[in-house]
Design a protein around this nucleic acid. Structure first.
Lengths: 201, 201
DNA sequence: CATGACATCTGACAGTTGTCACACGGAGTC
DNA sequence: GACTCCGTGTGACAACTGTCAGATGTCATG
């Protein structure tokens, strides 16, 4: 019996996936959580063989939760399940120690299949996505540029961001400027968009 | 037998919901689509009793698809199914002739229940959401302000938007300015955010 | 130890954005 | 008919933004 922890914030989707996985004779959903920061505490109690983690979750995102889970429970495999097949997501997932990366696109059977393959020790990755992630190259943004761009995403002004990160006004403008150029954008809004699309944030 | 059309862009979610609904003895998913603009053509062939429409879909969004479906097939009820319980969405859903509005939050049983109730002629709406929609008041943005704000959302400059909408530079700035003030924001990015959060776009 | 990448800062310049006052015509309302 | 709201436009001003050249310091790598 494969013991599964399922982390997904949309209740109806979580419920539906759990029900269908439970219908499989060799699979058993032993825990369900709706936020990233519940993953580790619940996993410590339920001791699953594999954790299915959505990336877009409140609290901690699925990638950060994956890293925390690998540290806390190394025996538990991680399968990332996401709406968006962004190359940067895949890269970060692998760096966080995930064993598989599945886009919520195909049929449900694909999911059960991926779980079994991961438990046999295989790595499950969409080949097209892997190629895209490799050909896209690494994240061009420096750590600070990411911070600043992320802080700018909600419409904050330069002065807001400067206060928030304890940096000078001019420094923020410089980071934004270089982030804009590295993303090939014309302004911070476009830069934020393309960075998100590539999974660089 | 209740005949259902299911429109949802995430393949795995669509597949899971369809499978679970088909397990109910009185429900039957007769058609599945993954984009808003397929709803009407497929419905004309499948002749469903009710259409379950996700809002966030490529092509035509679920709300626009609902209006089109009501016009093309008045006998078919519409149940809107969405991730986001935004007051403006609910308002627009009702204006588009939907019979119900369900947030993808509760268990799957809620969905089957809602379908049966809609088919009995009831209107299914989350009471808390309905209260929020009523107390929030109507959309404060004029049609043109919405157009301009939507065009600005992707990082377009004033000049871009002016070309795109065939308006003068100054007019765009005026609309943006009033949209910013009506939303209580400090710039177009914040304005876009709050407008989205309220479902005004 | 020289080189380069990164983090941090300043000051200056040009361009964009947000605001305001004002104008005109059309549609709807009291 | 006066009033108001909407759509459209202009011109001006202040604030914000994006770019550039330069400066300093740290750290890793060859």
């Amino acid at each position: 019996m494969i013991r599964i922890l399922l982390a997904e914030d949309q209740g109806m989707v979580r419920d539906a996936l759990a029900t269908l996985l439970d219908l499989e004779p060799d699979l058993e959903v032993v825990a369900q959580v709706s936020a990233g920061d519940q993953v580790v505490p619940v996993a410590l109690g339920a001791n699953p063989d594999i954790a299915l983690l959505d990336i877009e979750m409140p609290g901690l995102d699925g990638l950060a939760a994956a890293a925390a889970l690998r540290a806390a429970l190394p025996a538990c495999r991680v399968l990332i399940l996401t709406t968006f097949g962004r190359p940067g997501y895949l890269r970060r997932a692998m760096e966080s120690g995930a064993s598989g990366f599945l886009v919520k696109d195909g049929p449900v059977g694909q999911l059960a299949d991926a779980i079994r393959r991961v438990l046999r020790g295989e790595r499950v990755i969409n080949p097209a996505l892997a190629a895209a992630a490799l050909s896209a190259g690494p994240n061009p943004l420096s750590a600070r540029e990411r911070d600043v761009l992320a802080a700018a995403a909600d419409g904050s002004t330069v002065t807001d961001i400067a206060r928030q990160l304890h940096l000078s006004h001019g420094t923020i403008r410089n980071y934004l400027s270089s982030a804009i150029q590295k993303t090939g954008a014309r302004n911070r809004v476009e830069a934020t968009r393309t960075a998100h699309e590539h999974g660089w944030l």
